[in-house]
Amino acid sequence: MKIKIFLTIFFISFNLNLGSNEPIVESKIHKNLRCLVCQGQSIADSNSDFAITLKMVVKDLIKDGKSEDEIYDFLSEKYGDWILYNPKLNAGNLLLWSLPYLVLVFGGVIIVFLIRKQSKKT
């Protein structure tokens, strides 16, 4: 009985969020672009000439039907990967994206190993 209630509530609460497949959000892209002339700010937070220009260009690219990734590719081709706050998943960044998870798995294995070792003894 309880499990039924549990499951019902669980699914209802997720169903509410379906269909929230929004179009590309400009502000999300802005937050992912480093303002090159500022100190550690994204172009969303800046009002410099560079940030204003880039916001206009992003708007145009969206209007042209470019996807989020295409916009990032375009800009990193012009300004380098430095401009993207979300590093691309490529050969050079493989370690960056994978090492945290490797650590997570490795740590789990160690803990299981420690516990196993003990339960064998007893």
Binding site: F50, T53, L75, K78
Partner: peptide, 13 residues
């Protein structure tokens, strides 16, 4: 005039 072209050249300041 609006600066958009500068992006094509990788200009930032």
């Amino acid at each position: 005039s609006n600066g958009k072209q500068s992006v094509n050249f990788g200009i930032y300041g």
